[in-house]
Amino acid sequence: MIDPEQVKTEQRRSWNAISAGWDATHEIFERGGAALTRRLLDLADVRPGRRVLDVATGIGEPALNAAAAVGPGGRVVGVDISPAMLAVARRRARLHGCRNVAFAEGDVEHLGQPEGAFDVVLSRLGLMFAVDHVAAFRGLRAVLVPGGVLAAAVWAEPEAAPMMSLGYRVLADRLDLPPPPPGLPGPFSMSDPGRLAADLIAAGFQDVSVTAFTVPFRLDGPGEYVEITKAMTPPRLLGLLRDRYGSEDDPATWEAVGAAVAPFAAGGVIPLPSTALCVRAVAP
């Protein structure tokens, strides 16, 4: 049986540990991620004057782009479970001169925000880490005004999202990892579009749509995929590598990660298009 508090504690520890890696590889990820952000802003009709909540904002995306879109007459709040991620987000906001965005600690199921305070809720590749999906969606609905819009993206099935799945598959093979327990939060826990829509409806949302979006990731070589996979790898897995192979930098493991994307190479780069499911739902 899943212990929600234990799951949250481990999530916080993991995201804190990899916050510096996410910051360092941000530009690589945003080659594709920026297009997904634009899609979410369009779905939610984020425009000047809007009040926007970005859930699981990480190092500040799409909060910072939303802040630019809503202008000085709007405001944006980004929440995340990881204080270390939020520290990076605040620093990036200062660098961008964003005065209309604030960041606060909170997780998907415990937002810590007042009811009916936002016109839009955004989340880019973060909702999958909720323990109770329907309860999390109810919380998102509660902070929206009547007629407010949720626009979120989650990963489709692993086979359609190689940017996220290939590296993990190599690590799982190298470490002989068993499949995760059913119901455990993770990158692909919302990858069934029918179930995703049903959970949103069960949480009280209306006008629910779930559409596929191809995120146009591009790497400048296998080395970049190794770099970003290391940045995303939780400390638990790095510890298992160290225990099994003597070092979390085990050369054979990371050579295998690079080799996993080499077949995608084309014209000196590695296109790695990956499918996200984009949700649009309206609070009644």
Results as ranks from 00 to 15, higher is better:
residue 1 M to A: 15
residue 1 M to Q: 14
residue 3 D to R: 03
residue 13 R to I: 07
residue 16 N to G: 07
residue 16 N to S: 10
residue 16 N to K: 00
residue 17 A to T: 06
residue 19 S to L: 09
residue 21 G to H: 06
residue 22 W to T: 02
residue 22 W to Q: 11
residue 25 T to W: 04
residue 26 H to L: 13
residue 32 G to D: 07
residue 33 G to F: 11
residue 36 L to F: 11
residue 36 L to E: 14
residue 42 D to A: 13
residue 43 L to W: 03
residue 55 V to Q: 02
residue 61 E to Q: 14
residue 65 N to C: 06
residue 69 A to I: 03
residue 74 G to F: 02
residue 75 R to L: 11
residue 81 I to A: 14
residue 87 A to H: 10
residue 88 V to G: 07
residue 89 A to H: 02
residue 89 A to P: 00
residue 90 R to T: 13
residue 98 C to E: 15
residue 100 N to F: 13
residue 106 G to W: 01
residue 116 G to M: 10
residue 131 V to M: 02
residue 139 G to C: 06
residue 144 L to V: 01
residue 144 L to M: 04
residue 149 V to H: 00
residue 153 A to G: 14
residue 158 P to I: 04
residue 161 A to P: 00
residue 162 P to Q: 12
residue 164 M to A: 14
residue 166 L to T: 05
residue 172 A to C: 03
residue 181 P to N: 05
residue 184 L to K: 04
residue 185 P to W: 09
residue 189 S to K: 01
residue 198 A to H: 11
residue 203 A to I: 03
residue 204 G to R: 00
residue 205 F to Y: 08
residue 205 F to L: 07
residue 219 L to S: 05
residue 220 D to F: 10
residue 226 V to M: 11
residue 227 E to F: 11
residue 233 T to P: 01
residue 235 P to T: 02
residue 237 L to N: 03
residue 241 L to Y: 08
residue 246 G to I: 05
residue 247 S to P: 00
residue 247 S to M: 09
residue 252 A to E: 15
residue 262 A to N: 06
residue 263 P to W: 10
residue 264 F to P: 03
residue 267 G to K: 03
residue 267 G to P: 06
residue 273 P to E: 15
